[in-house]
Design a protein around this nucleic acid. Structure first.
Lengths: 237, 237
DNA sequence: ACGTCAAATCGTCGAATGTCGATTTATGTG
DNA sequence: CACATAAATCGACATTCGACGATTTGACGT
């Protein structure tokens, strides 16, 4: 009597729903393909269609993909991810829903990104932006849960009262999904911090996005998630 | 600083996702239209298209509606519901996610539906089926949360080890959604019980479905949800 | 600077969508 | 029973999808 994983269907449904409701379905298609780290060519092979079809969608020549197409697309993405080691889906716990946002705070008086570094035991990975820019608060996000729960419309809500803030992602796998999420949403953080991934394991695409967006990318080396949140609470006593 | 309701987007995304991933999108379109209690003609007017278009989709002549169409469809449904008094969406609380299934149990030895009645203080609403059929367990479901969380693929999971059971829905508004959900899924309960709605307020369509499916429909008059669950625990000590 | 691989572009074409309107077929309700 | 009203059915037709393959453009590694 095997146990069924409820998150599974949830993930697929969320993705499909987001694509369908998206202003530009093509953008959403691309977003998810990138999050899963699959190339157009590769995915095209799985779907047994020509890569140009995918490109045509993503770039907007075809603007309203049919339900059938979206379904095959999403199912292929997820199935392919499930098949390989270290995929997104493997990280999703069966239980534990809700609570993607672990903490959210505003500072009374702002501090620079550089000053913020020591609270998270941070190591700089990308710094095309400006670490001396002021930040006015931070948000800690469980990146795994965020995949399931937040997206598109909800994502901007993690910015509190102001968007001059640091976004801290925990349980980061490679950093691909968080960075792509940031890439495609409007308000952008001043600083991004990953926790749970080794500096050497950070996804290259993630770094590239950080550089392109001019957002400094930091890896926190704090022992664990709990301590990280603890340490952050010490700011501005 | 107006508060944003996160469930809102969630609901729409869930519906859109379900339609998109559905084996037969047309069936899903119909399901949700019926749940929201809107006629084809009415909805067609809102969408500024001919009613036959909707019929064509629902009956399957057009099998793969485009993202654009689905989006307009879902948005129209939800918007229209939000506009009117006593709609589905008004019932959805902003907070409180997860936990649609309040209780689930299997009996050691089966009992008849009629015997089950007294545990829920039940009043018979429809009885084209057989109240003397044996039931082997029950599942208590928060019908509001079920709309958001369960659907299609997840729904069958509320049947425990056996499907010869009673499904008890709490926080029932008119009983439309639960009955339609039952109508469109494969394993069907032997008995359906509503809690939270007055016998006179039960949706006519719901009753009709119950009769057509030959599933006895009962209204529980137990004071409140908590007591209902309590009382049920007393079965087969 | 060259080669490679991913992605973008674009012309083309059959099939399916998206839409109407007219006509039937239920399904009630007085 | 007959008349509204909802829904199903169907022929018609313009638009777009869904798909291919050839050709550019873009990034990156060496």
């Amino acid at each position: 009597m095997r146990e069924k994983n409820a998150s599974k269907d949830l993930l697929e449904k969320n993705i499909a729903g987001e694509i369908t409701l998206s202003e530009k379905p093509g953008k959403a298609l691309r977003k998810w393909r990138e999050i899963f780290g699959i190339t157009q060519k590769n995915l095209a092979k799985t779907l047994k269609i020509s890569p140009s079809v995918l490109s045509d969608y993503e770039s907007g020549r075809r603007r309203s993909p049919g339900a059938e197409f979206i379904k095959r697309y999403v199912l292929a993405l997820v199935a392919q991810d499930r098949r390989k080691e270290g995929g997104i889906t493997g990280k999703i716990p069966e239980t534990a829903k809700s609570g993607a946002v672990l903490d959210i705070r505003e500072f009374i008086k702002p501090m620079t990104g550089r000053a913020f570094l020591k609270y998270v035991n941070g190591r700089i990975i990308a710094d095309e932006g400006d670490l001396d820019k002021k930040i006015y608060g931070y948000t800690v996000i469980d990146s795994i849960k965020a995949i399931l729960e937040l997206s598109d419309t909800q994502f901007p809500q993690i910015y509190g009262l102001n968007n001059q803030r640091a976004l801290i992602f925990t349980k980061v796998h490679m950093g691909r999904s968080p960075m792509i999420a940031i890439k495609v949403t409007k308000p952008k953080p001043v600083l991004v911090i990953f926790h749970g991934v080794a500096p050497s394991e950070v996804d290259k695409l993630a770094v590239k996005i950080a550089e392109a967006e001019k957002i400094p990318l930091i890896i926190s080396l704090t022992e664990n998630e709990e301590k990280l949140v603890e340490d952050l609470k010490k700011i501005e006593a």
